[in-house]
């Protein structure tokens, strides 16, 4: 996979070369490499998310799961390759994309209420410089209702339990009214009630024809919760329907030790480029 014959294919070329990629795909990742400080953390990723399905991204720590999500949303630059959302670059498709970041990524002491946070999901619909109107607040309340958090709308967010905070994040994503959702470990550290609330919401989203891509840690629940799975460890180990791909053998390949040779090569690359910058 690493050695493509055409190194810098034009857009149309690459679509022709890879007939599996379709312009209707909610997320098409074309031969993407992502690097932090010039050290690659994702190698030659090729992936098409199936539309209207729940897809889990699974892999060990440091496999690049969050990186893949962030790169897909255009939050991290790509070292190589191209990513398309419903056939176009992310810049043109932002309104179609919703996001649930890791709970630990924000400061929960921030002086905002649960409702304020959910309203943030409407900011794109509201537009620059315009205030949050009553109609948008009402829409946000409905989203809070869908995750069973209406009673907590006016609480400052640090007064919520971990599971409740996660539900607020989910409500905010619902408020985005997106077609493609990225969720980074929405089930991490939540209580049983929250877990089932999240599962309900995910299934409703799927029934509405929306696509959800979730970083997920709990291997036991994958067959229950998800349709598709992407096994990732710096490169894609396997992808496809859970029934076919989620096998003991593939899991062993994903979790069975680091790719020492690839790791070494990454380190070497990082070294050469840092000595090059030093010379500059």
């Amino acid at each position: 996979m690493a050695l493509t014959e055409v190194h810098q294919p034009s857009r149309q070329d690459s679509l022709d070369l890879r007939p599996e990629h379709s312009a209707e795909s909610p997320l098409a990742v074309h031969d993407v490499t992502v690097a932090y400080h010039r050290k690659p953390v994702l190698w030659d990723i090729d992936f098409d998310a199936p539309i209207g399905k729940l897809t889990a991204i699974v892999g060990p720590n440091g496999a690049g799961k969050s990186t893949l999500i962030k790169a897909s949303m255009g939050l991290i630059p790509l070292a190589a390759g191209r990513i398309e959302i419903f056939g176009k670059a992310i810049r043109a498709q932002r309104k179609l994309v919703g996001y649930v970041p890791q709970r630990g990524s924000v400061d929960w002491d921030f002086p905002v209420s649960a409702l304020d946070v959910v309203c943030m999901g409407r900011y794109r619909a509201i537009g620059w410089c315009k205030p949050v109107t009553r109609a948008h607040k009402k829409a946000a309340m409905e989203c809070l209702d869908r995750v069973g958090m209406v009673d907590f709308a006016n609480r400052q967010i640090s007064q919520l339990s971990g599971g409740q905070q996660q539900r607020v994040f989910l409500a905010r994503a619902l408020a985005q009214d997106a077609q493609l959702y990225f969720m980074d470990e929405p089930f991490a550290g939540v209580d049983a009630a929250t877990e089932s609330a999240i599962v309900d919401v995910l299934r409703t989203l799927r029934d509405q024809g929306r696509t959800v891509i979730c970083v997920h840690h709990d291997l036991q629940t994958i067959p229950d919760y998800f349709d598709h799975v992407l096994l990732l460890n710096m490169r894609i180990v396997a992808q496809g329907p859970v029934a076919e791909v989620f096998t003991q053998e593939n899991l062993q390949k994903t979790y069975g030790g680091r790719l020492t040779l690839l790791d070494e090569a990454s380190e070497a690359l990082a070294r050469t480029s840092s000595s090059r910058t030093a010379k500059k």
């Binding site: 962030k70 939050l75 932002r94 921030f110 905002v112 304020d116 943030m120 794109r124 205030p131």
Partner: peptide, 22 residues
């Protein structure tokens, strides 16, 4: 006053803000 909403979201969750086009 004009950019209150934008200032709030970029301070609270810069990644979400950027993904929304702010």
């Amino acid at each position: 006053m004009l950019f209150f909403k934008e200032l709030r979201i970029t301070a609270f969750d810069p990644e979400l803000a950027t993904s929304l086009g702010i």
